[in-house]
Computed example of a mutant assay.
Amino acid sequence: MFLGELEKLVLQYLWEIESADAKQVFAYFEKSRGGTLNTIQSTLDRLFKKGLLAREKHGHAFQYRAAVDRDVFIGRLITNISSDFGSSGENMLLAAFNSLSNGMDEKQLDELERLIDERRLKANSDRQI
């Protein structure tokens, strides 16, 4: 899935603050990026149509929030990219993680190991049910 620069920034913002309407998003980006309220509204609508944002009508405005957890989204991106560059998606995914781990420090590697152990425990408990 391709995201433009503003789409990425808006998604990051909504992950951090949880929900906002178009005017709040515009006010946040107005000083640093410029642009118009219409540009922000279009960006929010595109992200909604891509399934990355959820929205609810509050009065005359939509309140937007991320529809996908940040970690889940990043995982999907990595999976999509790895499958785009080879027929063997799982091997490509492992190669990507191996490459990424080269730049990790001890603390990050420990956290990765903890997450892998946690995932193994969950997989084992799911099999037993």
Results as ranks from 00 to 15, higher is better:
R120Y: 09
A22R: 02
L47S: 04
T43Q: 02
Q128E: 11
T79M: 07
V68A: 04
K50M: 08
N80H: 11
I74P: 01
V25M: 05
R55H: 06
R127M: 10
S88T: 11
L53S: 01
F62A: 04
I116V: 15
T39L: 10
A61M: 08
S87C: 07
E56A: 11
R114P: 01
W15T: 03
K8D: 07
R127G: 06
I40L: 04
S32L: 07
A123V: 09
L94F: 14
N124H: 08
L9S: 04
L37E: 10
G103C: 07
E118F: 08
R65M: 12
N91T: 10
N38C: 06
L9D: 05
S32R: 13
N102W: 10
D110K: 15
S87H: 14
S42E: 09
L37R: 13
D110E: 15
A54T: 14
D45E: 14
A61I: 01
S101D: 04
S87R: 15
T36F: 05
Y28I: 01
K50P: 01
H58W: 06
K49T: 09
E113N: 10
W15S: 03
R70I: 09
Y28S: 08
S88N: 15
S99A: 14
E90T: 13
A27C: 05
T43V: 06
R127S: 12
H58Q: 11
A54M: 07
